[in-house]
Design a protein around this nucleic acid. Structure first.
Lengths: 111, 111, 111
DNA sequence: TCCGTTCTAGAATATTCGTGT
DNA sequence: TACACGAATATTCTAGAACGG
């Protein structure tokens, strides 16, 4: 593979989610049309800085929103503050398991 | 040796990349369609001045871009914790291992 | 220290230059109206990543230019064999030793 | 004229911080 | 409160421009 017009953020996100080695931190949702972050703390402190130039969940989420991802609203967070919720799920219509080529359709939101 | 209309920059680049003696500093990529620079520091201070009239990576990169080479963005690079990537990779559709004659097709970008 | 409207890049640059502990890598020029980088290689690999989220001289220089700094052209650095590219000097009219308050006057170039 | 070297800038993406709903 | 967005700064890759051999 030589060149890809997919932004680094998306290519890395795909690799993170698709890598079975890190399924305890981030993995595909049951339907393959979303991804789930487990262990918010470890994910933020170990996996994020491996792929990106920061270790802030907020920055990661900002990028997700920038590219049109949305958070799946949890039915019950147990009354915990959001930053303490260990599980978070995001989705995008073109971020689907087994359909990496669709990444090329994802664009930053402009307005 | 017959005269060649290949610019000195390209001829030297080819020789540098193709020379097995300096593979620890610069060599062909795995597929033979790119070249990789290891040890940015040593490459800059020892190999560059041997072939060119300077020892500045920036000048070298300027020439690469001038001739239409592009940097390969590694999906594994860029992270805070990712290993100190002293490694840089560039490619050009006519810069291929074993196809030195294709160098004649490489032209400076004019615009 | 009270809140400051000085961009992080400038505040960190000042600290780097003014810190006597790292004078072997970066320090004030003789007149106090410029700063000098010694040991380009070590500076890039150790000091830059300590202050910023990268270890690329090119990115550092891009920021310097963005804020209006200029490179001092060495009289003897133009000749061939200027192997002392290990030394680089930059200046800005509002970047002066002992006058940290002037940093507030430095703005990004807009055009 | 062409090519090479240097310094600076353009443009796209990435990171941070704060605001709006 | 929780989620999303605006805007400013930062990082990367490539290009413009001046100069010289």
């Amino acid at each position: 593979m030589v060149t890809s017009n997919v932004p680094a953020f998306l290519a890395k996100l795909w690799k993170m989610v698709d890598d079975p080695e890190t399924n305890h931190l981030i993995e595909w949702g049951d339907e393959g049309n979303s991804f789930v972050i487990h262990n918010h703390g470890e994910f933020e402190q170990t996996l994020l800085p491996y792929y990106y130039k920061h270790s802030n969940m907020a920055s990661f989420v900002r990028q997700l929103n920038m590219y049109g991802f949305h958070k799946k609203v949890g039915i019950d967070s147990g009354g915990l503050k959001s930053e303490h919720v260990e599980e978070q799920e995001f989705y995008h219509p073109y971020f689907l398991r087994g359909q990496e080529h669709l990444l090329e359709n994802i664009k930053v939101c402009i307005r």
